[in-house]
Design a protein around this nucleic acid. Sequence first.
DNA 1: TAAAAAACTTGAAGTACTTCAAGAAATAAG
DNA 2: CTTATTTCTTGAAGTACTTCAAGTTTTTTA
Lengths: 190, 190
Amino acid sequence: MQSALLEHIQTKISLKAEEQELLLSKIESKKISKKELLLQEGEICDFLCFVAKGCLRLYIINEKGNEQTLQFGIENWWITDYMSFDNQKPSHFYIQAVENSEIVLIHKNDIEYLFSEIPQLERYFRMILQKSFAASQMRIKFLFTMSAEERYHHFNNSFPEFVQRVPQYMLASYLDFSAEFMSKIRSGKI
Amino acid sequence: MQSALLEHIQTKISLKAEEQELLLSKIESKKISKKELLLQEGEICDFLCFVAKGCLRLYIINEKGNEQTLQFGIENWWITDYMSFDNQKPSHFYIQAVENSEIVLIHKNDIEYLFSEIPQLERYFRMILQKSFAASQMRIKFLFTMSAEERYHHFNNSFPEFVQRVPQYMLASYLDFSAEFMSKIRSGKI
DNA sequence: TAAAAAACTTGAAGTACTTCAAGAAATAAG
DNA sequence: CTTATTTCTTGAAGTACTTCAAGTTTTTTA
Protein backbone atom coordinates (compact mmCIF):
# COMPACT_ATOMS: atom_id res chain seq x y z
CA MET A 1 0.00 0.00 0.00
CA GLN A 2 3.02 2.22 0.42
CA SER A 3 3.84 1.53 -3.18
CA ALA A 4 0.33 2.50 -4.25
CA LEU A 5 1.08 5.98 -2.94
CA LEU A 6 4.53 6.09 -4.49
CA GLU A 7 3.12 4.97 -7.81
CA HIS A 8 0.41 7.57 -7.69
CA ILE A 9 2.88 10.31 -6.85
CA GLN A 10 5.08 9.22 -9.73
CA THR A 11 2.25 9.63 -12.20
CA LYS A 12 2.56 13.37 -11.49
CA ILE A 13 6.21 13.98 -10.58
CA SER A 14 9.40 11.91 -10.53
CA LEU A 15 11.31 11.24 -7.36
CA LYS A 16 14.93 10.13 -6.92
CA ALA A 17 15.58 6.92 -5.04
CA GLU A 18 16.66 8.76 -1.89
CA GLU A 19 13.59 10.97 -2.01
CA GLN A 20 11.39 7.91 -2.25
CA GLU A 21 13.12 6.42 0.77
CA LEU A 22 12.75 9.58 2.77
CA LEU A 23 9.09 9.73 1.89
CA LEU A 24 8.51 6.12 2.87
CA SER A 25 10.26 6.72 6.18
CA LYS A 26 7.77 9.45 7.08
CA ILE A 27 4.47 7.81 6.22
CA GLU A 28 2.27 5.49 8.21
CA SER A 29 0.55 2.66 6.35
CA LYS A 30 -2.30 0.91 8.05
CA LYS A 31 -5.37 -1.21 7.62
CA ILE A 32 -8.68 0.04 8.81
CA SER A 33 -11.78 -2.07 9.09
CA LYS A 34 -15.24 -1.28 7.88
CA LYS A 35 -17.01 1.24 10.16
CA GLU A 36 -13.81 2.13 11.98
CA LEU A 37 -13.39 5.87 12.56
CA LEU A 38 -10.24 7.71 11.53
CA LEU A 39 -11.45 11.10 12.74
CA GLN A 40 -14.31 12.25 14.97
CA GLU A 41 -16.02 15.59 15.33
CA GLY A 42 -14.11 17.70 17.84
CA GLU A 43 -10.75 16.06 17.18
CA ILE A 44 -7.98 17.90 15.39
CA CYS A 45 -7.15 16.41 12.01
CA ASP A 46 -3.36 16.25 11.91
CA PHE A 47 -2.97 13.95 8.91
CA LEU A 48 -3.50 13.66 5.21
CA CYS A 49 -5.07 10.30 4.32
CA PHE A 50 -4.45 8.48 1.05
CA VAL A 51 -6.71 5.56 0.18
CA ALA A 52 -4.59 2.75 -1.24
CA LYS A 53 -7.41 0.21 -1.25
CA GLY A 54 -11.06 0.33 -0.19
CA CYS A 55 -13.31 3.25 0.50
CA LEU A 56 -13.65 5.90 3.18
CA ARG A 57 -16.15 8.67 3.66
CA LEU A 58 -16.25 12.05 5.35
CA TYR A 59 -19.59 12.77 7.02
CA ILE A 60 -21.36 14.87 9.59
CA ILE A 61 -24.07 14.10 12.10
CA ASN A 62 -26.78 16.75 11.79
CA GLU A 63 -29.07 18.21 14.45
CA LYS A 64 -31.58 15.42 14.01
CA GLY A 65 -28.87 12.86 14.62
CA ASN A 66 -28.70 11.70 11.00
CA GLU A 67 -25.47 11.08 9.15
CA GLN A 68 -24.85 13.03 5.95
CA THR A 69 -21.96 12.02 3.74
CA LEU A 70 -20.08 14.95 2.21
CA GLN A 71 -17.32 13.06 0.40
CA PHE A 72 -16.23 9.59 -0.54
CA GLY A 73 -12.62 8.59 -1.08
CA ILE A 74 -11.69 5.49 -3.04
CA GLU A 75 -8.43 4.08 -4.41
CA ASN A 76 -5.88 6.80 -5.19
CA TRP A 77 -7.84 9.62 -3.61
CA TRP A 78 -6.98 11.71 -0.60
CA ILE A 79 -9.55 12.33 2.10
CA THR A 80 -8.92 14.86 4.84
CA ASP A 81 -10.60 17.69 6.70
CA TYR A 82 -8.41 20.44 5.28
CA MET A 83 -9.95 23.17 7.44
CA SER A 84 -9.02 21.36 10.62
CA PHE A 85 -5.67 20.28 9.15
CA ASP A 86 -4.71 23.81 8.04
CA ASN A 87 -5.75 25.63 11.17
CA GLN A 88 -5.29 22.81 13.67
CA LYS A 89 -8.78 23.48 14.99
CA PRO A 90 -11.36 20.85 16.03
CA SER A 91 -13.01 19.12 13.10
CA HIS A 92 -16.67 19.37 12.16
CA PHE A 93 -16.48 15.98 10.49
CA TYR A 94 -16.16 12.25 10.93
CA ILE A 95 -13.97 10.15 8.62
CA GLN A 96 -14.87 6.47 8.52
CA ALA A 97 -14.04 3.36 6.52
CA VAL A 98 -16.97 2.24 4.37
CA GLU A 99 -15.11 -0.97 3.43
CA ASN A 100 -12.10 -2.72 4.96
CA SER A 101 -9.40 -0.47 3.61
CA GLU A 102 -5.69 0.15 3.35
CA ILE A 103 -4.61 3.70 3.90
CA VAL A 104 -1.49 5.80 4.11
CA LEU A 105 -1.27 8.66 6.57
CA ILE A 106 1.14 11.57 6.50
CA HIS A 107 1.14 13.64 9.65
CA LYS A 108 1.25 17.40 9.63
CA ASN A 109 4.79 17.74 10.99
CA ASP A 110 6.07 15.16 8.58
CA ILE A 111 4.47 16.70 5.54
CA GLU A 112 6.03 20.06 6.36
CA TYR A 113 9.41 18.39 6.67
CA LEU A 114 8.86 16.48 3.43
CA PHE A 115 7.93 19.67 1.60
CA SER A 116 11.17 21.25 2.73
CA GLU A 117 13.26 18.25 1.66
CA ILE A 118 11.36 17.35 -1.52
CA PRO A 119 10.04 20.59 -3.06
CA GLN A 120 8.54 18.63 -5.96
CA LEU A 121 6.00 17.26 -3.51
CA GLU A 122 4.41 20.68 -3.38
CA ARG A 123 3.71 20.27 -7.08
CA TYR A 124 2.07 16.90 -6.54
CA PHE A 125 -0.27 18.25 -3.89
CA ARG A 126 -0.99 21.37 -5.89
CA MET A 127 -2.16 19.15 -8.71
CA ILE A 128 -4.22 16.96 -6.39
CA LEU A 129 -5.86 19.97 -4.78
CA GLN A 130 -6.52 21.64 -8.11
CA LYS A 131 -8.38 18.54 -9.25
CA SER A 132 -10.25 18.31 -5.96
CA PHE A 133 -11.33 21.91 -6.11
CA ALA A 134 -12.34 21.58 -9.76
CA ALA A 135 -14.50 18.58 -8.83
CA SER A 136 -15.98 20.56 -6.00
CA GLN A 137 -16.93 23.44 -8.34
CA MET A 138 -18.75 20.96 -10.57
CA ARG A 139 -20.39 19.32 -7.57
CA ILE A 140 -21.91 22.61 -6.50
CA LYS A 141 -23.12 23.21 -10.03
CA PHE A 142 -24.89 19.83 -10.01
CA LEU A 143 -26.40 20.43 -6.58
CA PHE A 144 -27.68 23.81 -7.73
CA THR A 145 -29.11 22.90 -11.11
CA MET A 146 -30.35 19.32 -10.96
CA SER A 147 -33.39 17.83 -9.26
CA ALA A 148 -32.90 14.90 -6.90
CA GLU A 149 -33.84 12.48 -9.64
CA GLU A 150 -31.45 14.07 -12.13
CA ARG A 151 -28.62 13.96 -9.61
CA TYR A 152 -29.29 10.27 -9.00
CA HIS A 153 -29.29 9.33 -12.68
CA HIS A 154 -26.31 11.50 -13.44
CA PHE A 155 -24.27 9.92 -10.66
CA ASN A 156 -25.39 6.47 -11.64
CA ASN A 157 -24.34 7.02 -15.23
CA SER A 158 -21.04 8.58 -14.26
CA PHE A 159 -19.97 6.01 -11.64
CA PRO A 160 -22.02 2.82 -12.16
CA GLU A 161 -19.45 0.55 -10.50
CA PHE A 162 -19.07 2.79 -7.46
CA VAL A 163 -22.81 2.87 -6.81
CA GLN A 164 -22.61 -0.87 -6.12
CA ARG A 165 -20.00 -0.37 -3.41
CA VAL A 166 -21.82 1.83 -0.92
CA PRO A 167 -25.16 1.56 0.88
CA GLN A 168 -27.91 3.52 -0.80
CA TYR A 169 -28.60 5.65 2.23
CA MET A 170 -25.03 6.96 2.17
CA LEU A 171 -25.29 7.80 -1.50
CA ALA A 172 -28.67 9.46 -0.96
CA SER A 173 -27.23 11.78 1.67
CA TYR A 174 -24.20 12.50 -0.55
CA LEU A 175 -26.58 13.56 -3.30
CA ASP A 176 -28.54 15.59 -0.73
CA PHE A 177 -31.87 13.81 -0.50
CA SER A 178 -33.42 11.29 1.85
CA ALA A 179 -32.94 7.52 1.69
CA GLU A 180 -36.71 7.10 1.32
CA PHE A 181 -36.81 9.40 -1.67
CA MET A 182 -33.96 7.49 -3.27
CA SER A 183 -35.94 4.31 -2.88
CA LYS A 184 -38.89 5.91 -4.64
CA ILE A 185 -36.73 7.17 -7.48
CA ARG A 186 -35.25 3.71 -7.97
CA SER A 187 -38.64 2.02 -8.00
CA GLY A 188 -39.83 4.43 -10.66
CA LYS A 189 -42.67 5.63 -8.45
CA ILE A 190 -41.73 9.23 -8.84
CA MET B 1 -2.47 45.99 -8.98
CA GLN B 2 0.57 43.96 -9.95
CA SER B 3 1.98 44.74 -6.57
CA ALA B 4 -1.18 43.54 -4.85
CA LEU B 5 -0.44 40.12 -6.30
CA LEU B 6 3.24 40.25 -5.40
CA GLU B 7 2.39 41.29 -1.88
CA HIS B 8 -0.10 38.50 -1.51
CA ILE B 9 2.35 35.94 -2.80
CA GLN B 10 4.97 37.19 -0.38
CA THR B 11 2.69 36.61 2.58
CA LYS B 12 3.12 32.89 1.81
CA ILE B 13 6.56 32.53 0.22
CA SER B 14 9.54 34.81 -0.40
CA LEU B 15 10.79 35.61 -3.87
CA LYS B 16 14.16 36.95 -4.96
CA ALA B 17 14.25 40.19 -6.92
CA GLU B 18 14.82 38.43 -10.23
CA GLU B 19 12.00 36.00 -9.56
CA GLN B 20 9.68 38.91 -8.90
CA GLU B 21 10.71 40.49 -12.17
CA LEU B 22 10.19 37.29 -14.08
CA LEU B 23 6.77 36.89 -12.55
CA LEU B 24 5.79 40.45 -13.37
CA SER B 25 6.90 39.96 -16.95
CA LYS B 26 4.49 37.05 -17.38
CA ILE B 27 1.32 38.46 -15.94
CA GLU B 28 -1.38 40.60 -17.45
CA SER B 29 -2.91 43.32 -15.31
CA LYS B 30 -6.14 44.86 -16.43
CA LYS B 31 -9.22 46.78 -15.43
CA ILE B 32 -12.58 45.27 -16.01
CA SER B 33 -15.83 47.19 -15.69
CA LYS B 34 -18.95 46.16 -13.86
CA LYS B 35 -20.93 43.52 -15.79
CA GLU B 36 -18.07 42.81 -18.19
CA LEU B 37 -17.50 39.11 -18.85
CA LEU B 38 -14.09 37.51 -18.42
CA LEU B 39 -15.27 34.03 -19.41
CA GLN B 40 -18.39 32.67 -21.09
CA GLU B 41 -19.91 29.21 -21.13
CA GLY B 42 -18.36 27.22 -23.97
CA GLU B 43 -15.05 29.09 -23.94
CA ILE B 44 -11.89 27.46 -22.69
CA CYS B 45 -10.54 29.04 -19.52
CA ASP B 46 -6.83 29.46 -20.11
CA PHE B 47 -6.03 31.79 -17.24
CA LEU B 48 -5.91 32.09 -13.50
CA CYS B 49 -7.51 35.33 -12.32
CA PHE B 50 -6.41 37.21 -9.19
CA VAL B 51 -8.68 39.96 -7.91
CA ALA B 52 -6.54 42.93 -6.90
CA LYS B 53 -9.48 45.28 -6.35
CA GLY B 54 -13.24 44.91 -6.71
CA CYS B 55 -15.38 41.83 -6.99
CA LEU B 56 -16.02 39.13 -9.57
CA ARG B 57 -18.38 36.19 -9.60
CA LEU B 58 -18.54 32.80 -11.26
CA TYR B 59 -22.07 31.83 -12.29
CA ILE B 60 -24.14 29.60 -14.53
CA ILE B 61 -27.32 30.16 -16.47
CA ASN B 62 -29.72 27.33 -15.69
CA GLU B 63 -32.35 25.69 -17.88
CA LYS B 64 -34.94 28.29 -16.96
CA GLY B 65 -32.56 31.04 -18.04
CA ASN B 66 -31.80 32.22 -14.52
CA GLU B 67 -28.34 33.08 -13.30
CA GLN B 68 -27.01 31.21 -10.29
CA THR B 69 -23.84 32.44 -8.63
CA LEU B 70 -21.51 29.66 -7.50
CA GLN B 71 -18.61 31.76 -6.22
CA PHE B 72 -17.60 35.29 -5.47
CA GLY B 73 -14.03 36.54 -5.60
CA ILE B 74 -12.97 39.72 -3.81
CA GLU B 75 -9.61 41.35 -3.06
CA ASN B 76 -6.79 38.82 -2.78
CA TRP B 77 -8.81 35.86 -4.00
CA TRP B 78 -8.38 33.82 -7.13
CA ILE B 79 -11.36 33.01 -9.31
CA THR B 80 -11.06 30.52 -12.14
CA ASP B 81 -12.85 27.56 -13.68
CA TYR B 82 -10.27 24.99 -12.70
CA MET B 83 -11.99 22.13 -14.54
CA SER B 84 -11.78 23.98 -17.85
CA PHE B 85 -8.30 25.29 -17.01
CA ASP B 86 -6.90 21.84 -16.12
CA ASN B 87 -8.37 19.95 -19.03
CA GLN B 88 -8.59 22.76 -21.55
CA LYS B 89 -12.20 21.85 -22.20
CA PRO B 90 -15.11 24.28 -22.72
CA SER B 91 -16.31 25.90 -19.53
CA HIS B 92 -19.71 25.42 -17.92
CA PHE B 93 -19.44 28.83 -16.31
CA TYR B 94 -19.46 32.57 -16.76
CA ILE B 95 -17.04 34.83 -14.90
CA GLN B 96 -18.16 38.43 -14.61
CA ALA B 97 -17.20 41.62 -12.78
CA VAL B 98 -19.74 42.54 -10.11
CA GLU B 99 -17.98 45.88 -9.53
CA ASN B 100 -15.43 47.82 -11.56
CA SER B 101 -12.37 45.79 -10.75
CA GLU B 102 -8.65 45.42 -11.18
CA ILE B 103 -7.44 41.94 -11.94
CA VAL B 104 -4.27 40.07 -12.74
CA LEU B 105 -4.33 37.20 -15.22
CA ILE B 106 -1.75 34.48 -15.61
CA HIS B 107 -2.17 32.38 -18.72
CA LYS B 108 -1.80 28.63 -18.74
CA ASN B 109 1.44 28.54 -20.74
CA ASP B 110 2.96 31.21 -18.58
CA ILE B 111 2.04 29.60 -15.31
CA GLU B 112 3.66 26.34 -16.43
CA TYR B 113 6.80 28.24 -17.35
CA LEU B 114 6.74 30.13 -14.07
CA PHE B 115 6.39 26.89 -12.11
CA SER B 116 9.47 25.54 -13.83
CA GLU B 117 11.50 28.68 -13.13
CA ILE B 118 10.16 29.48 -9.66
CA PRO B 119 9.38 26.16 -7.93
CA GLN B 120 8.31 28.03 -4.79
CA LEU B 121 5.26 29.21 -6.70
CA GLU B 122 3.92 25.68 -6.55
CA ARG B 123 3.90 26.08 -2.80
CA TYR B 124 1.96 29.32 -3.00
CA PHE B 125 -0.72 27.79 -5.17
CA ARG B 126 -0.85 24.63 -3.11
CA MET B 127 -1.61 26.79 -0.09
CA ILE B 128 -4.23 28.82 -1.98
CA LEU B 129 -5.92 25.70 -3.27
CA GLN B 130 -5.83 24.01 0.10
CA LYS B 131 -7.66 26.99 1.59
CA SER B 132 -10.12 27.05 -1.29
CA PHE B 133 -10.91 23.39 -0.97
CA ALA B 134 -11.24 23.67 2.80
CA ALA B 135 -13.74 26.50 2.31
CA SER B 136 -15.58 24.40 -0.20
CA GLN B 137 -15.87 21.49 2.25
CA MET B 138 -17.42 23.84 4.78
CA ARG B 139 -19.71 25.34 2.16
CA ILE B 140 -21.16 21.94 1.36
CA LYS B 141 -21.64 21.29 5.05
CA PHE B 142 -23.62 24.52 5.39
CA LEU B 143 -25.70 23.80 2.28
CA PHE B 144 -26.52 20.33 3.63
CA THR B 145 -27.33 21.18 7.22
CA MET B 146 -28.81 24.65 7.33
CA SER B 147 -32.22 25.92 6.23
CA ALA B 148 -32.40 28.84 3.82
CA GLU B 149 -32.98 31.22 6.71
CA GLU B 150 -30.07 29.82 8.70
CA ARG B 151 -27.76 30.12 5.70
CA TYR B 152 -28.79 33.74 5.25
CA HIS B 153 -28.20 34.71 8.86
CA HIS B 154 -24.96 32.77 9.06
CA PHE B 155 -23.59 34.46 5.96
CA ASN B 156 -24.76 37.84 7.14
CA ASN B 157 -23.02 37.40 10.47
CA SER B 158 -19.86 36.06 8.89
CA PHE B 159 -19.48 38.68 6.14
CA PRO B 160 -21.61 41.70 7.04
CA GLU B 161 -19.57 44.15 4.95
CA PHE B 162 -19.59 41.92 1.89
CA VAL B 163 -23.37 41.58 1.94
CA GLN B 164 -23.57 45.31 1.25
CA ARG B 165 -21.48 44.99 -1.89
CA VAL B 166 -23.57 42.65 -4.03
CA PRO B 167 -27.21 42.67 -5.16
CA GLN B 168 -29.45 40.51 -3.01
CA TYR B 169 -30.53 38.32 -5.87
CA MET B 170 -26.91 37.27 -6.48
CA LEU B 171 -26.43 36.44 -2.84
CA ALA B 172 -29.72 34.53 -2.76
CA SER B 173 -28.62 32.31 -5.63
CA TYR B 174 -25.19 31.82 -4.00
CA LEU B 175 -26.97 30.61 -0.88
CA ASP B 176 -29.21 28.43 -3.05
CA PHE B 177 -32.64 29.96 -2.66
CA SER B 178 -34.77 32.36 -4.66
CA ALA B 179 -34.53 36.15 -4.56
CA GLU B 180 -38.19 36.30 -3.51
CA PHE B 181 -37.58 34.01 -0.57
CA MET B 182 -34.61 36.13 0.50
CA SER B 183 -36.87 39.15 0.50
CA LYS B 184 -39.32 37.36 2.75
CA ILE B 185 -36.59 36.27 5.14
CA ARG B 186 -35.30 39.84 5.38
CA SER B 187 -38.72 41.27 6.04
CA GLY B 188 -39.22 38.78 8.84
CA LYS B 189 -42.34 37.39 7.22
CA ILE B 190 -41.08 33.84 7.39
C1' DT C 1 -28.04 -21.97 10.13
C1' DA C 2 -30.43 -19.17 13.30
C1' DA C 3 -30.75 -14.85 15.14
C1' DA C 4 -29.51 -10.13 15.08
C1' DA C 5 -28.43 -6.16 12.73
C1' DA C 6 -28.34 -3.34 8.82
C1' DA C 7 -30.39 -1.71 4.73
C1' DC C 8 -34.32 -0.94 1.82
C1' DT C 9 -39.37 -0.07 0.69
C1' DT C 10 -43.97 1.90 0.90
C1' DG C 11 -47.74 5.13 1.66
C1' DA C 12 -49.75 9.05 3.99
C1' DA C 13 -49.22 13.52 5.75
C1' DG C 14 -46.61 17.66 6.15
C1' DT C 15 -43.46 21.59 4.90
C1' DA C 16 -39.86 24.52 3.12
C1' DC C 17 -39.38 26.15 -0.25
C1' DT C 18 -40.37 27.83 -5.73
C1' DT C 19 -42.88 30.09 -9.28
C1' DC C 20 -45.60 33.58 -11.14
C1' DA C 21 -47.22 38.10 -11.69
C1' DA C 22 -47.43 42.70 -10.66
C1' DG C 23 -46.06 46.74 -8.43
C1' DA C 24 -42.78 49.70 -5.71
C1' DA C 25 -38.31 51.41 -4.73
C1' DA C 26 -33.64 52.36 -5.73
C1' DT C 27 -29.95 53.21 -8.93
C1' DA C 28 -27.92 54.52 -13.20
C1' DA C 29 -27.93 57.02 -17.55
C1' DG C 30 -28.93 60.73 -20.62
C1' DC D 1 -33.81 66.59 -13.27
C1' DT D 2 -36.28 62.67 -16.02
C1' DT D 3 -36.52 58.58 -17.74
C1' DA D 4 -34.94 53.96 -18.17
C1' DT D 5 -33.11 50.15 -15.98
C1' DT D 6 -32.19 47.33 -12.32
C1' DT D 7 -33.34 45.57 -7.97
C1' DC D 8 -36.52 44.47 -4.32
C1' DT D 9 -41.15 43.23 -2.35
C1' DT D 10 -45.58 40.95 -1.71
C1' DG D 11 -49.20 37.47 -1.85
C1' DA D 12 -51.33 33.40 -3.80
C1' DA D 13 -50.84 28.95 -5.63
C1' DG D 14 -48.06 25.01 -6.53
C1' DT D 15 -44.45 21.31 -5.88
C1' DA D 16 -40.38 18.66 -4.83
C1' DC D 17 -39.20 17.08 -1.61
C1' DT D 18 -39.04 15.38 3.95
C1' DT D 19 -40.67 12.97 7.89
C1' DC D 20 -42.75 9.32 10.19
C1' DA D 21 -43.95 4.72 10.99
C1' DA D 22 -44.18 0.13 9.91
C1' DG D 23 -43.01 -3.74 7.32
C1' DT D 24 -39.75 -6.46 4.23
C1' DT D 25 -35.48 -7.88 2.53
C1' DT D 26 -30.61 -8.51 2.77
C1' DT D 27 -26.35 -9.01 5.14
C1' DT D 28 -23.64 -10.03 9.06
C1' DT D 29 -22.57 -12.38 13.16
C1' DA D 30 -22.43 -16.06 16.41
